[in-house]
Amino acid sequence: MIKRSLGAAALLAAGLWATGCTADLPGGGEVTLDPDGVSVGNGDGSVSMDQDGNTSITGEGENTLNIATADGTVTEDCQGRFVNITANAGEVVLNGDCAAVTVLGSNMTVHIGTVETITVMGTDNTVYYSGGEPTTNNLGADNDVSQGGNAQS
């Protein structure tokens, strides 16, 4: 009987993983499981892990978006906010207008729609902006800030 129950639970879990599933959590959050990975979040932020095990964390305040990732890809809409990115060897895409973006890490690629100020700390980071003429502060080594990239203005 126990073997049948475990087998049924495994079959159900595999079916939910393959087709995708979202479950509401008490307090307004939700858990989403699909072939791309798993995420847990609420209106203030989220934690996610993709199918390769890359993890990212986003947290939102009234005018600030905080992103932390390692070897992952994060895409967010700026919505006029200040953005702080702490990461290593990841990629971040910030679509739309950002007030300011601060990058702290190494081996990052960051794509920004439009932004007033870009500050880069760390090494070997590449930061692109789609439009405008932002003020740039390069406080690290071997960082490149230039127009271009994949973000939408």
Rank of each mutant, 00 (worst) to 15 (best):
E116T: 01
G96Q: 03
E91A: 02
A99H: 12
V127W: 12
D77G: 04
V120P: 08
T126W: 09
D77N: 10
G80R: 04
M108F: 06
V110P: 04
T114S: 15
D124P: 00
N125V: 06
T73L: 05
D97M: 01
G122S: 09
T86H: 14
G80F: 03
V115M: 05
D77Q: 08
G105F: 12
T126Q: 07
V127C: 11
N88Q: 10
M108Q: 12
T73P: 00
V120T: 07
N107T: 00
N125R: 11
V93A: 01
N88S: 14
A89G: 00
E76R: 14
A99K: 10
F82G: 13
N88G: 13
T117D: 06
D77A: 06
A99N: 13
N88A: 15
G113T: 04
N95W: 00
Q79S: 08
T117S: 06
A87Y: 11
V93I: 14
T123A: 09
R81Q: 08
R81N: 02
M121C: 12
T102G: 13
V101L: 10
T126V: 10
G122I: 05
T119K: 14
V93Q: 03
E91Q: 04
G90C: 06
N95E: 01
L94N: 04
T119D: 15
E116L: 05
L104I: 14
H111F: 07
F82K: 15
T109R: 05
I112S: 02
N84I: 11
G80N: 04
I85A: 09
I85W: 06
T102P: 08
V101T: 07
V74I: 13
H111N: 03
V127E: 09
V93P: 00
V110G: 06
N125W: 09
D77I: 00
L104N: 15
M121Q: 15
Q79L: 07
N107V: 00
R81V: 01
V74K: 11
E76L: 10
M121A: 15
C78A: 15
T119P: 09
I85H: 07
I112E: 02
G122W: 08
V101D: 09
I118D: 08
V103R: 12
A99R: 10
L94P: 01
N88R: 11
Q79V: 02
Q79I: 00
V83Q: 06
V93R: 07
E116S: 04
T102K: 14
V110N: 07
A100C: 09
L104R: 14
T126R: 11
V127F: 13
A100D: 12
M108P: 01
T73K: 02
M121N: 15
I118F: 08
V115E: 05
F82T: 15
G90W: 08
A99E: 11
L104Q: 13
C98P: 01
V127H: 06
D77S: 04
L104Y: 12
T109Y: 03
T102R: 14
G90M: 04
D124T: 01
T114K: 11
D124G: 02
V115G: 04
V74W: 14
E91P: 00
G105W: 12
V103G: 10
T86I: 14
V74P: 10
T126M: 09
G80E: 02
N125K: 08
D97A: 02
T123F: 03
G90Q: 07
G122D: 09
M121I: 13
A87M: 13
V92F: 07
T73W: 05
F82C: 13
L94T: 04
T75R: 12
F82D: 15
D124Y: 03
A89W: 00
E91W: 00
